[in-house]
């Protein structure tokens, strides 16, 4: 069903949903001079801010930065899911895709990650189309539709004045039943308009995915693209798909809790052996690992899908403005040249 309401009426709808769901939505937070859009649990629905992509991805609701796994001596697991299901409101196509990218990693047949699985089962996401390109994003270059997503119970559109709800899950229809119907032709016209805005600004990345492993690994450009990299973990911690982790332990009286925590391939300690040997000693090796993991290793292992949803946060948040698109373009040029050499061209 297609429904449409004025944006000022959103509160009433969320009020109803609030009985059944813990509602997480993008809100503005001001820290000193910095204005950020972040996902938080909302009580005051007027706070919700949908005008731009949130600065942080919703990854932490599936993989919290610090997550208590359980008590080690007893082996007792802890699952911290609340009384209500979680509804994450206004998740854009890139971030929806990112969760899809994480699924086969954590729900594999060999070792299903129960913590991720339970959070996923306990969460519903309402998608939100992008009526214009967001800062530094390039989802359309990786085949992601900024105006639609699969397997989403509700996908929304914001035309500035009104919010459109494409309700696809029967069990949620009750919340929308008494809202005014939307005119699907009108929505199609709007979408076409927005779509053309994306086409006008598309970069077009024609890099082969997966990157051919050895050719790309041994390519000469890694030092160049990583020359100004500071070696912090911002790109990985703001990435909606980066999932590398580590463990730490915390004593509570007699009990010992095992925690899982985000870790980053950009940190030297990540791969440093006890002996002091480090297979990824330098920053360009670590940058190579990050990019190769996303565009070569991961798609090799997971049906050609890169571990990147092109949200652009690694670019926007990088303290020295390193641009993933430039790295991909560099790789594109090199890998194409290499291809040309191979085919005798």
């Amino acid at each position: 069903m297609l429904k449409v309401i004025g944006k000022n009426e959103l509160g009433k709808l969320l009020e109803k949903l609030n009985d059944k769901f813990r509602i997480i939505a993008p809100v503005i937070r001001q820290y000193g001079k910095k204005e950020r859009v972040e996902y938080h649990q909302v009580e005051d629905f007027d706070e919700i801010f949908l005008d731009r992509q949130p600065d942080t991805p919703p990854k932490k609701f599936f993989l919290p930065q610090n997550e208590r796994l359980g008590e080690e001596k007893s082996g007792e697991q802890v699952f911290e899911t609340g009384d209500r299901k979680t509804l994450i409101f206004g998740v854009r196509s890139c971030d929806l895709k990112a969760i899809d990218i994480l699924k086969p990693v954590f729900l594999d047949n060999d070792f299903t990650d129960t913590y991720f699985e339970k959070r996923l089962e306990n969460t519903v996401m309402f998608g939100l189309g992008c009526s214009k390109r967001q800062e530094n994003c390039f989802c359309d270059s990786l085949g992601i539709d900024p105006l639609d997503a699969e397997n989403i119970p509700v996908y929304m559109y914001d035309d500035g004045e009104r919010l459109w709800f494409d309700v696809r899950a029967g069990e949620l229809e009750e919340f929308f039943a008494d809202l005014p119907d939307g005119n699907s032709e009108e929505l199609e016209r709007l979408k076409k308009d927005w779509q053309s805005g994306f086409e006008d600004t598309k970069i077009g990345i024609e890099v082969p995915i997966p990157f051919p492993e050895l050719v790309a690994f041994n390519a000469p450009f890694w030092k160049e693209v990583a020359a100004n990299c500071l070696g912090c973990g911002v790109c990985t911690y703001y990435c909606p798909t980066c999932f590398c982790f580590g463990f730490f332990w915390e004593k509570r009286e007699e009990e010992i809790d095992k925690w899982r925590t985000w870790d980053s391939c950009m940190f030297p300690l990540f791969t440093k052996h006890g002996s002091g040997h480090n297979p990824r000693e330098t920053q360009d090796q670590r940058t190579r690992q990050r990019i190769m993991h996303k565009f070569s290793y991961h798609p090799h292992n997971f049906e050609g899908v890169p571990a990147c949803s092109a949200c652009g946060r690694c670019i926007s948040q990088c303290p020295v403005n390193i641009d993933l698109r430039v790295i991909l373009k560099t790789a594109e040029k090199h890998l194409k040249d290499e291809e040309g050499v191979k085919s005798g061209g």
Binding site: F111, C244, F245, T271, P279, H293
Partner: peptide, 24 residues
């Protein structure tokens, strides 16, 4: 091969060599 295996499940990301997770 000896790498810094940690999770053992082919997920945590520190033992990979190319597409292979040494732990898995």
């Amino acid at each position: 091969l000896e790498m810094k295996m940690s999770c053992g499940l082919g997920k945590c990301g520190r033992c990979n060599i190319g597409r292979y997770y040494v732990c898995k």
